[in-house]
Design a binder for these strands. Structure first.
Lengths: 345, 345
DNA sequence: CTGTTATTTGACAACGCTGTCATCTAGCAA
DNA sequence: TTGCTAGATGACAGCGTTGTCAAATAACAG
C-alpha cells in the first residue's frame, strides 16, 4: 500500500475551465448546463464543445448549495424482500438516469422509532429535491404527515387506500385477484381455498375482496370455501396449505395472496403427496422471483414493480418541474399462466 | 394538489443558528461537529446542547464543498442477483450508519461500454470520498486501473485472484468447496457429481479446485466423477442435473457451484422422480435466499455477504482516516446443513 | 507581577456553482 | 443616422460549511 505517499488527485475541472476554453463567462456556461433560454445557438454550441472536450462534470454539492435544486432525489423503503427492493431500485434508477438526476437510495429497514428522524435527516442533510416512497413506508401515516408538515415533495408507490392528495402509482389489486379467481373457476374449479395476506398490508384486503367478487359473480358460496390466514411468508403459507389439504373435503385449487405463501402451499402439497397441478392447482400473486423457482412454476399475477417505481420517479420529476400531475396513476397487471394450475380433476 | 401555492419550506437551520444559541463562533461549532481537538470540554458541551436543541443537521453539500471530505462513500456493483445485492447494500449501510457517513448506492447494471465513464462521473459529481466495489466489478481490471489512475480510494469485495495492492475482503472459496465435498464423502458418498460455475467468475475455478482437493485427499478418482458445466442459473443447473441422473451409473450426490444451480438439480431430481435426499444428496454454495425456499432446503456454504460488505466499508473508512489497513481480509464461511443431504443409500 | 508559551477561539477567505441585476449588443423603426 | 427595445451576456454576491491564520485567553515559569 502506497496510499500515504500518493500524489494529490488531479485538480477537478471547474466551470471556470470551461468558461475560459469557450471564451465566455461562467454564467453562460451555467445557462447552457441548465438548458436555460437566452443563449445564442452558436454560443451554446461553443460551450457544449468545451464541456465535452474537458469531460467536465458539474459538482453536485456546489449546485445544490448555490441553487434551489440539488438534482438529487431520494428513494426510501422499509422492505425485507430483496427482489421487490431490487426491482424498485432499478425502475427508479432507470428514470433518473434519463432525467440526468442522481438517485439517493436509503434503506430504512429495521429503523422502528427513529424512522421519521432518519428520513427527515436525509432530506435535511442531502438536500434531496423530493422523495419516492415505496411500500410499506408509502402507507405510513405518521411519516407521510411529517413529510407533509415540512413541505417535502414526494410520490408514493402502492400506498393502499390512503386519501392523501400527493401523487401515487398504484395497481388494481382487487381486480387482479378477481381475475385470477375467475381464471381458476374457468378451469372448472368449484372448491377454491384462499390464503389471506398479512393483515397490516392494505393490499391484503383488496386481494381478498377480489377473490370474493369472483366467487359472487360465479354464484359460488364464499362462506363454504376454506379460507386461512397467512402472514406473507413461506412458513405460514405452508401451514395454511396443510390445514386445507387435511380437510375432509379439500379444495381442488388454492389461491394465495402472495407468491411466498403460494410456494408454501406447494411445499405442503409435496409433503402430503398431493400432485400439483393434476390434483391441486395453486396460484400466487406478485410474480416475484420465487414464482419461477418453485416446482412447478407458479401461475401468478405479475405486478409491474419496476415500472411502478419508474413511473413514480417520473411523476416526482414532473412535480419538481412544476408540472401538474394526476393524483393517481394506475398501472396494468398481467396474469401469468405457468405450471401450477390445471383444469379441475 | 395544492403544491403550487404551498408556503415556502421552513428555513433550514444553519450553523449560524447553533453558534448564536451556544454563544460561540461558527468555527467552534464546526470544530465540535468534526470532533476536532482544541475545544474546552465545557464549550463543547454547550455547543452539543445547542445542536440537540435545534435538531441541527449540517448540510452535506456545504461540507463537501468547503472541506476536503464529503462524508459520502459510494457502493458500486453490476450484479443481477437481487439477493446478493440486497445483502451487500445492507452490510455497507450498517457500517456507514455507525460511522455517521452516507452511502451512495450506484447500480451499474447493464452499462457495458459506458461503465467507466459512469463511475468516474459518479466520483466527480458527488465527491464521494471513496468506493466500495462489489463483484463482479471488483474483478474488472480496466475499471480498477482507471480508478487507480485518478487516485480514487477504494476497497474491493471478493476481487478474485487479482494482484492489485488495494485492500480487499475475501472468502476462501476453495477451502469451503473442499470442506463441503469432504462432508459429502463423510456421509458415505463415493460417486459425487459437480456442476461447474460460470467460467467468467473467478470464484468458479476456486470452488472447482476445492472439490478436486477433497476427492484427492479421499483417494477418489476425480476423472471418474460426472462433472457438468453450468452457468450459475437454475436452468443450466437443471440441465446438468438431468444429464447426470440419466447416466448409467448416476451419482448419489451432486455438488453445485452455486445455490441457483443446486436448486436446478433438485428440480431435475423431481422431474426424474428421484427423491432428495434419500436417493440423491444435493449441496449448493452461497446460502442465498433460494437455499431456504427450495424443497428440501439446501445444504450449502454460507457466504457472509453482508459481513463482507460491512467489513469492506470499515476498511474504506479506515483508509480514508489514514489508518494503515491490511491488504486482504478473509472472512469465515460456514457449512450449513439442511435437508438436501443425507447418508449415501 | 511580568513575560512567555500553550491553548482556545474567532475573522475571513475560500469551495464551485446559481440568482439577481446591470450592462452590452444587435435589430429595427423612424 | 439615431433612438429604442429585446435579447444575450457578464459582474458580483451569496449558498453553508471548512481551512488558514491571527487574536485572545489561559497557564505557567521566573
Amino acid at each position: 500500500m502506497n496510499v500515504g505517499i500518493r500524489p494529490a488527485l488531479a485538480p477537478r475541472k471547474t466551470i471556470d475551465d470551461v468558461a475560459e476554453l469557450a471564451g465566455v463567462s461562467i454564467k453562460t456556461v451555467s445557462r447552457v448546463m441548465n438548458s436555460e433560454p437566452g443563449v445564442r445557438p452558436e454560443t451554446r454550441l461553443k460551450v457544449q464543445q468545451a464541456i465535452a472536450e474537458l469531460h467536465y462534470k458539474p459538482s453536485l454539492p456546489a449546485r445544490s448549495l448555490a441553487g434551489k435544486r440539488s438534482n438529487l432525489i431520494g428513494l426510501i423503503y422499509d422492505n425485507p424482500s430483496a427482489n421487490y427492493v431490487f426491482d424498485v431500485q432499478n425502475g427508479a434508477i432507470a428514470r433518473c438516469r434519463e432525467a440526468d438526476l442522481r438517485l439517493f437510495i436509503q434503506s430504512c429497514n429495521g429503523l422502528g422509532e427513529s424512522l421519521i428522524d432518519e428520513v427527515l435527516a436525509l432530506v435535511e442533510q442531502t438536500h434531496v429535491d423530493g422523495l419516492v416512497i415505496a411500500p410499506p413506508l408509502s402507507a405510513d401515516r405518521v411519516l407521510i404527515e411529517a413529510l407533509d408538515a415540512r413541505h417535502v415533495r414526494f410520490v408514493r408507490i402502492a400506498p393502499g387506500e390512503g386519501d392523501h392528495p400527493s401523487p401515487a402509482v398504484t395497481m388494481d389489486d382487487r381486480e387482479a385477484a378477481r381475475e385470477m379467481t375467475a381464471f381458476l373457476i374457468g378451469l372448472g374449479h368449484r372448491r377454491i381455498g384462499f390464503v389471506t395476506g398479512h393483515p397490516d398490508h392494505l393490499s391484503s384486503r383488496q386481494r381478498s375482496d377480489g377473490y370474493a367478487d369472483a366467487l359472487r359473480e360465479a354464484g359460488i358460496d364464499r362462506d363454504a370455501q376454506p379460507i386461512e390466514q397467512g402472514y406473507n411468508d413461506i412458513a405460514t403459507g405452508s401451514e395454511a396449505g396443510l390445514r386445507m389439504l387435511d380437510l375432509a373435503e379439500p379444495p381442488t385449487a388454492i389461491f394465495a395472496s402472495n407468491d411466498d405463501m403460494a410456494a408454501g402451499v406447494i411445499r405442503a402439497a409435496h409433503e402430503r403427496g398431493v400432485d400439483v397441478p393434476s390434483r391441486l392447482s395453486v396460484a400466487g400473486f406478485d410474480d416475484s422471483q420465487i414464482a419461477g423457482i418453485v416446482w412447478p412454476t407458479l401461475t401468478t399475477i405479475h405486478q409491474p414493480t419496476a415500472d411502478m417505481a419508474n413511473e413514480a420517479a417520473r411523476l416526482l420529476i414532473d412535480l419538481l418541474k412544476g408540472k401538474e400531475t394526476a393524483p393517481v396513476t394506475e398501472l396494468a397487471y398481467t396474469l401469468i399462466k405457468r405450471g401450477s394450475t390445471a383444469p379441475a380433476p
